[in-house]
Design a protein around this nucleic acid. Structure first.
Lengths: 261, 261
DNA sequence: AAAAAAGTTCCATAAAATGGAACTTGAGTT
DNA sequence: AACTCAAGTTCCATTTTATGGAACTTTTTT
């Protein structure tokens, strides 16, 4: 086993709730001998992957990683485009917008735009949530053929709330609705009182796929506002799909898309 | 030489003009044997540091690096970052550097780095000085809209010296200059014979704002040295602003920022 | 001041990286 | 369809690096 994989294991220890690590953290998180943990952290710092916090024994990701991570957005230009679209929509409607990607059955937030409203949904970049139980996840899963979704969830799943799909059949039914309507919606699934609307779009040249999502407190949004959000998302995604020539793009159903007076 | 350092060399190949790399790129950029380049890129992808673009032979940074890089922003608090920047600059120029925050119409020093020169400005951490009559204060006030400054100073103020702003209008005029030039300057205000140059930067996620200041005896600094200080401060603050995505950041005016021959 | 926890260094052994050359793949050309 | 050249991959013996247990040092807590 290469030291590279140990180094990556260290990087995976970082999360929105763990901004830095110590030798002991590695020992307990990765079951690594103390000697290795000590040398590995030092080596990673010497190479510039990590930096020490002040002159303590705590290690955090380095500026280099910050810079390289930033390049991901441009390398995956789909993300960049989606981000600017969701940023504009978030500004318009005042609610939190974010874009996410799917990794297997998980969804990972990539960029976020906090809303303007006093009551706003806060998302944490980098956290993983279950794909089947979120609007972003279902927007992305709707791009897959049904048998591939069945294969992904061959092991079944545990619904986190009453409003999430309770079994595979319900998930497939809701994906069918998403394919017909052109958007996915969630309510009280990951977070109580929070509603979210998502659409998805892909780039066939790179194989990337992203979800664009607007998330808002269920109580404060009128039916008209909700419709406006759906239309903005649909239009934004359609613009991107036109650019990338996305063959899997699911447009809004004409009855929803038609322009308001 | 560990494979770790080779992997970091690969990461350093990425830049705003190079979003992905190939085996050949590494051969020419790093002078690495083809065999190593090929295995290294594959290993880095297998471990999750890189991902292939579509199914081409091009490699780009991975989502993992994007996530970890993102954590840097939270791991290094604004004050921490500003302190390390001002420490470096203070070392470079030999003069006293400090960082401060604003509380209403007062400025409070948070950390200080004493200079190396025999004649040095001494600051005391925790002391409060008037914001309107200091370069740090004006650097921070320049981030506010004009009417908010008017509201802060609705009760008027008493100038401590001839070179400090004498009334609200003069203060506003000097803030306008700071907004245009990207830095604030004071001379003989709080202490006679002392000149100070400040820039400011904020972190929108925490709402923190700090001023970075270099303070020196007016008599001992040449115009060239003064310009170098302004540029160092401007560059340091710009780095921090890029990290925090500070929307209020005031960059140096291009005519000042431009690199000396 | 003692005790406990955290971190570092040392060592022989086990494992992985190296670079040259041969081999395979793929894109463009005749 | 066969050819050509560039790009990428695999193989191998040798050299270099990583490993984990234990002893040691430093830091923190009681």
């Amino acid at each position: 086993m290469s030291i590279l994989s140990a180094a990556v294991d260290v990087l995976r220890c970082f999360s929105s709730t763990r901004h830095d690590v110590t030798v002991t953290d590695l020992v307990s998180l990765l079951g690594m001998p103390k000697s290795n943990a000590s040398r590995l952290l030092r080596a990673m710092r010497d190479e510039g992957l990590l930096e020490t916090v002040g002159d303590s024994k705590r290690y955090r990701p380095s500026l280099l990683l910050n810079q390289v991570g930033h390049i991901y957005r441009f390398a995956a230009s789909l993300i960049d485009r989606a981000d600017s679209v969701i940023g504009r929509i978030s500004d318009e409607v005042g609610h939190t917008g974010y874009i996410s990607v799917r990794r297997g059955t998980d969804i990972v937030g990539v960029t976020a735009h906090p809303g303007r409203h006093a009551l706003r949904v806060v998302t944490s970049i980098g956290d993983r949530i279950a794909a089947f139980a979120s609007s972003t996840g279902r927007a992305l899963l709707a791009r897959l053929p049904e048998d591939e979704v069945r294969r992904l969830y061959a092991g079944g799943f545990v619904p986190p709330s009453d409003t999430a799909p309770q079994d595979l059949d319900e998930l497939l039914a809701r994906l069918a609705v998403t394919r017909r309507e052109g958007y996915a919606e969630s309510h009280d699934e990951a977070v109580r009182g929070v509603r979210a609307i998502s659409v998805s779009v892909g780039d066939p040249t790179t194989g990337d796929e992203v979800a664009l999502c607007i998330s808002f407190p269920a109580a404060t949004v009128t039916p008209e506002e909700r419709l406006a959000i759906i239309r903005s998302l649909g239009e934004g995604a359609a613009e991107i799909a036109a650019l990338t020539r996305d063959p899997l793009f699911i447009p809004l159903h004409p009855s929803i898309a038609e322009t308001a007076p």
